[in-house]
Amino acid sequence: MLTLQDIQICYGSNRVVEQFSWHLDAGDIGCLLGSSGSGKTSILKAIAGFKAISTGGIHINDNEVSSDIRQVPPEQRQIGMMFQDLALFPHLNVARNITFGLQKLTKDKQQARLEELLDLVDLVGKENAMVHELSGGQQQRVALARALAPKPNLLLLDEPFSSLDKDLRESLATQIRQILKAEHITALLVTHDHVEAFTMADKIAVLNKGHLVQSGTPYEVYHRPDSPDIARFLGICDYLPAQLNAEGKVATPLGTFAMPSGGEYEPGAALQLLVRPDDVVHDDNSAMKATVVRRYFKGAQFLFELRCQEHRLHCYASAHHDHKPGDAIGIRFDMQHSVIFPAG
């Protein structure tokens, strides 16, 4: 469906994206995840046709839309786009915003498509409202409907939820994912927020300084990060010093764990073991004790920052466990996906 082949993007002499290759299948929701300056928005603009690429190629449905010598103009690419600032037309009402790109259809067909979309994004009855009269979430859905109206080959979403508050962001991301899935729409999302990426995407490309550093499903990149940098970017990380012992297991001061598959290390190599909050389980009956350093109340849960033999760990526990800083609490490890990196 969408293929990016060795693309390079430059601003002047500044190369912001280098040797980037990736692929999305029809119906997939992809995500370019990276901090600001990672080049993710430049890639999106290149796919939309707003930015030329200097080498490589971009193909949509096996048609080449960008190469080093030819750029199909954006209006001929049949791409839908949701903008960071939404870019809703302030002088038009909801209906006219949504049907903006349908001028070639007859009035009847426009009306039919409008009704279909209003129903899809749950805005029936709002068609005559002006954009500024709507709430943030409603504006977001108008932008989605407008982008989907001409039945685009591919939908691009540029940090679409950045203007919303956290709760609305997650519920809207879920809603939009459901709509895209129900309509079998291929989409590509750009964000710096891993939670948003995990909620929306089937497939994630993690970018750093213009390079693709890891690609995979959300589950894969979270549980099998390729480097400590990627791991840190995707959530809370703690590390235990570790060594590969003679039996091929990972020995740490807090216990010995199975060696993850794929790692090729010599016995005796100095390593570090990644411990995520979900690897540590609070268990009052456990003999292993850790001291509470800080706690963060999250409503249904506490996030505890712990100290166990001079090693920092984090763990989630039900909010019923009202332990205070300084308390010693029982923990045990539940290492389903141990990840090791060379010590460093």
Binding site: P74, E75, R77, A87, G101
Partner: peptide
């Protein structure tokens, strides 16, 4: 200042020509 560049881009992704963007987006705003 009220015609942010992303409005132009939105118009283009909705298959509007340069002249159409001036007429349908810029002029009324």
């Amino acid at each position: 200042a009220r015609v942010s560049p992303s409005l132009d881009e939105a118009g283009k992704t909705l298959a509007e020509s340069g002249w159409g963007i001036l007429r349908r987006i810029h002029a009324p705003i």
